[in-house]
Nucleic acid binder design. Structure first.
Lengths: 337, 337
DNA sequence: TTGTATGCGTTATCAT
DNA sequence: ATGATAACGCATACAA
């Protein structure tokens, strides 16, 4: 662990001032080819690398972004992170990852921490923090992009999934496949998208003149617990299809069906939400409202990069639409047989 | 975006020197209760937060760790990252995330970048970089923990999964369930664990006096492509069980079986590897060689933290053993019926 | 084209 | 208990 070289050491070795080294490092034009080559050689030879801390002290830029999300294990987030990471890296930005575990206090401390590191921007995924407090925390800092949350504030932009349209499309698809008794499992109450998906569901049913049976609307309390029981309830109520709030819960629904000797898709059709890898690799493959997760990440990163650059005309709100992706978990109910 | 306050601003407001502010910030004892309270009040009032850049310039500690991994989308890594993150956060360490995409050049530049940020330590997951170059790169830096790679070097510790034992246990389990024609799908050649898993498989067969049929040993070239075809081959060769290199590929095997009208587990038993969430939520649930992914992350983080602290007696190599987890994808072949 | 002086925000050292 | 001064490694402004 030899002591780390500084720009001064290199300057001495090269017999020039440290300014010249700095110029070479930053590709400034005002350096003669001779000294530039010479300096580069020495830098290369000794494997010198400038301290980004020191640099950022004077440039006021750290080239870092903080990413806060509740749970990196969740493929929904992991796949988005991948998109974010790729785009940021391509733009020489690096990522601080903060996992907040859906915990408000964690969120607060992570946001502060990120500020202390003087990140150039932040990406906040579903913070539990209420609007007022969030607004207070982010007054004096860098640009922010919010995922699935809308907050009208200076330096804040949002990327949101159109959950209502997703709920609508899923229900509509099932209806057009001949289903009319369609159960819906609504996600945890904390997820703001839950209500919207339900709205979409209701809209579709109404549009097709199907009366809404409140007994077919069930919700999980927390996490994915209870999906098994809810599935059982819905089956007892003679649904022919179930639409769920994400792919994982859809997978649980299918497990429950198997346990109850109900065949998917023969007896019951199941539609998921998100389109994570799981939906493709499971058997039967899942019909789901797929989100372009990588692209969402890419979009988030690009918006943030533009905000950092100070570009104008940046959309305050970007909406992402889920797309129906047919798998083998749904089946058309032929009425003529 | 009001200008950021510095320690000097606070000092002026409080009518003391910035040294005193620094002392309060760092909970030094040598400050009278009066001024401490006063200073804290002003800090609180103005929401002052010290610059960690500036601090780390002088303390030579950044409280950051760099984590390099090929693919955050892969639940295997995502779940480990969760463990790493939790443990680091609990120790006031923050995470730089670098996704390398299995690309050597990316790895090199990410390692350099991490060094430039003066991270206090690094965690490297399966870098493609060869031993010699890896050794060269890490000479003058902070402690490193390697996942699934062994490199004897100063300041380097490794955490490895015992793939051979995993391969052995999976095969042994199937044998004891009455299977003798057991196919094995070996992972991409780049994964060093592939050969070891195969070793374990062979060991189990030999132990039970089952001759090794090379036709039942097939490998994928790259990624998870071709698993479908390989499954088909194995089925044609009349296997009654297939063991695979990870859970995702096992899921593909099950899909292929379904496509070929082969029932799992009735006609064929399937064993996965890793024990990611997928293995539990799919139908049938997967029998798999489960790894304690969260604990692996926790272990990695703890070792690194101890190295940073300069503790001694740190193990150079930690081995993690996969554990058989029975799901519904395997079935005992009753010989008496 | 190159060098000198200054400052970024903090902690460490040595005073008082 | 508190303050003055220097230092961390770099880039910027200005001078030569």
């Amino acid at each position: 662990m030899g002591k780390k070289l500084t720009i001064n050491d290199i300057a001495k070795m090269a017999g020039v001032s440290r300014q010249t080294i700095s110029r070479v490092l930053n590709n400034k034009e005002e350096v003669s080819e001779g000294t530039r080559k010479q300096v580069l050689r020495i830098i290369e030879e000794h494997g010198f690398q400038p301290s980004l801390q020191a640099r950022s002290m004077v440039t006021r830029k750290t080239n870092t972004i903080a990413l806060l999300l509740p749970d990196i294990k969740n493929p929904f987030f992991a796949e988005i992170v991948y998109g974010i990471e790729r785009t940021l890296r391509a733009n020489n930005m690096n990522l601080f990852l903060f996992t907040t575990d859906e915990d408000v206090e964690h969120e607060v401390s992570c946001i502060k921490l990120a500020q202390n590191y003087n990140v150039d921007g932040m990406i906040l995924c579903s913070p539990r923090l209420d609007d007022a407090n969030l607004r207070k925390m982010i007054t004096k800092i860098s640009p922010i992009v919010l995922l699935n949350r809308d907050l009208e504030a200076e330096g804040v932009s949002s990327v949101m999934v159109d959950a209502k349209q997703g709920g609508y499309t899923a229900a509509k698809y099932l209806i057009e496949q001949g289903h009319s008794r369609i159960g819906i499992i609504v996600g945890p109450p904390l997820a703001s998208s839950s209500a919207k998906r339900l709205d979409g569901y209701k809209k579709a049913l109404q549009e097709y003149g199907i009366s809404i049976d409140e007994d077919l609307i069930v919700s999980v309390e927390v996490g994915d617990e209870g999906v098994h029981k809810l599935t059982q309830q819905l089956i007892r109520r003679n649904v022919t299809a179930i639409t769920t709030y994400n792919d994982i819960s859809a997978a649980y629904v299918i497990q429950a069906c198997r346990d109850l000797n109900v065949e998917v898709p023969d007896d019951i059709s199941v539609v998921g939400f998100d389109g994570i890898v799981l939906s493709q690799v499971m058997t039967p493959s899942l019909t789901t409202m797929a989100l372009p997760l990588f692209e969402i990440g890419d979009t988030i990163a690009n918006i943030l990069l533009r905000m950092i650059k100070g570009s104008d005309g940046i959309e305050r709100l970007t909406t992402v639409y889920p797309l129906l992706k047919e798998g083998n978990s749904t089946k058309s109910i032929s009425l003529s047989y």
